Lab assay of single mutants.
Amino acid sequence: DEDSERELEKLRKNNASKEEIKEVLKRLGFSEDEAKKLAEKAG
């Protein structure tokens, strides 16, 4: 959803580590696997 998109955008701009991105995604309700895949894509 839009909030998670914004959250990811912010992380990308701040050069967050894949680990940080994954944690945020998991907080947003993604499964471990989904979060890992998305973090890879974002990283």
Score class of each variant (00 low, 15 high):
Leu11Thr: 01
Ala42Ser: 10
Asn15Leu: 06
Glu19Lys: 04
Ser17Met: 04
Leu11Pro: 03
Ser31Ala: 05
Glu9Ala: 09
Glu7Thr: 13
Lys41Arg: 10
Phe30Val: 03
Ser17Gly: 06
Val24Phe: 15
Arg6Glu: 07
Lys37Trp: 08
Glu40Gln: 06
Ser17Gln: 05
Asp3Asn: 10
Ala39Gln: 01
Glu9His: 06
Lys41Ser: 13
Lys10Gly: 08
Glu32Ile: 03
Glu40Gly: 04
Asp33Arg: 06
Glu40Phe: 05
Ala39Ser: 09
Lys26Ser: 05
Glu5Leu: 14
Lys36Cys: 13
Lys41Asp: 11
Ala42Glu: 11
Phe30Trp: 10
Phe30Gly: 00
Glu34Pro: 00
Lys22Leu: 15
Leu38Arg: 05
Lys41His: 12
Val24Pro: 00
Lys26Trp: 00
Lys22Met: 15
Glu40Ala: 06
Lys26Tyr: 02
Glu7His: 08
Leu8Tyr: 04
Glu20Thr: 07
Asp33Met: 08
Arg27Ile: 09
Lys41Trp: 14
Glu23Met: 03
Asn15Tyr: 08
Gly43Ser: 13
Ala42His: 15
Ala39Lys: 01
Lys10Ser: 10
Ala39Thr: 07
Glu23Ile: 03
Lys26Gly: 04
Lys26Leu: 15
Ala42Thr: 10
Lys18Ile: 15
Ser31Leu: 04
Asp1Trp: 14
Glu32Phe: 03
Lys26Arg: 09
Glu19Thr: 05
Lys41Phe: 12
Glu5Lys: 12
Ser31Asn: 07
Glu7Ile: 15
Gly29Arg: 00
Glu40Pro: 01
Arg6Ser: 11
Lys13Met: 08
Lys22Pro: 00
Lys13Tyr: 08
Glu20Cys: 07
Leu8Gln: 02
Ala35Gln: 01
Glu20Gln: 11
Glu7Val: 15
Glu2Ala: 11
Lys10His: 09
Leu11Phe: 05
Ala42Pro: 08
Leu38Ala: 05
Glu32Thr: 04
Asn14Tyr: 06
Lys13Gly: 09
Glu20Pro: 00
Lys22Trp: 14
Leu11Asn: 03
Gly43Pro: 10
Glu23Lys: 07
Asn15Pro: 01
Asn14Asp: 07
Arg27Gln: 12
Lys10Met: 12
Lys18Glu: 11
Glu34Lys: 03
Gly43Ala: 11
Ala35Met: 05
Arg6Pro: 04
Glu19Ser: 06
Glu5Ala: 10
Arg6Gly: 06
Arg27Lys: 13
Asn15Asp: 06
Arg12Ala: 08
Ser31Gln: 05
Asp1Met: 12
Gly29Asp: 02
Glu40Cys: 04
Glu5Asp: 10
Asp3Thr: 12
Ser17Phe: 07
Leu8Cys: 08
Ala39Asn: 02
Arg12Asp: 04
Lys22Arg: 11
Leu25Glu: 01
Arg6Val: 09
Glu34His: 05
Leu11Gly: 02
Ala42Asp: 11
Ile21Met: 08
Arg27Tyr: 08
Glu9Lys: 05
Ser4Arg: 12
Glu19Ala: 07
Asp3His: 11
Lys36Gly: 12
Lys37Met: 09
Ala16Val: 06
Glu20Asn: 03
Ala35Ile: 12
Phe30Tyr: 13
Lys10Arg: 14
Lys36Thr: 14
Asn14Ile: 06
Glu19Leu: 04
Glu40Asn: 07
Asp3Lys: 11
Lys18Ala: 12
Leu25Thr: 00
Asp1Gly: 11
Ser4Tyr: 15
Lys22His: 11
Arg27Val: 08
Asp3Gly: 11
Leu25Arg: 00
Glu5Trp: 15
Ser17Ala: 04
Leu25Val: 00
Asp3Ile: 13
Glu19Pro: 00
Glu5His: 11
Asp1Asn: 11
Asp3Val: 11
Lys10Val: 10
Asp3Pro: 07
Lys41Asn: 11
Lys41Leu: 14
Glu40His: 05
Glu23Tyr: 00
Glu7Lys: 06
Arg12Val: 14
Glu7Asp: 04
Leu38Cys: 14
Lys26Ala: 03
Asp33Ser: 08
Gly43Asp: 12
Ala42Lys: 08
Glu23Asn: 08
Glu7Leu: 15
Lys41Cys: 14
Gly29Trp: 01
Asp3Ser: 09
Lys41Glu: 11
Glu2Met: 14
Lys41Val: 14
Val24Lys: 03
Leu25Trp: 00
Ser4Met: 15
Ser31Phe: 02
Glu34Leu: 09
Glu34Asn: 04
Glu7Phe: 12
Ala16Gln: 03
Glu19Arg: 04
Lys36Ser: 14
Glu40Val: 04
Arg27Leu: 14
Lys18Arg: 10
Glu40Ile: 04
Ala16Glu: 01
Glu20Val: 08
Ile21Val: 06
Glu20Arg: 07
Ile21Glu: 00
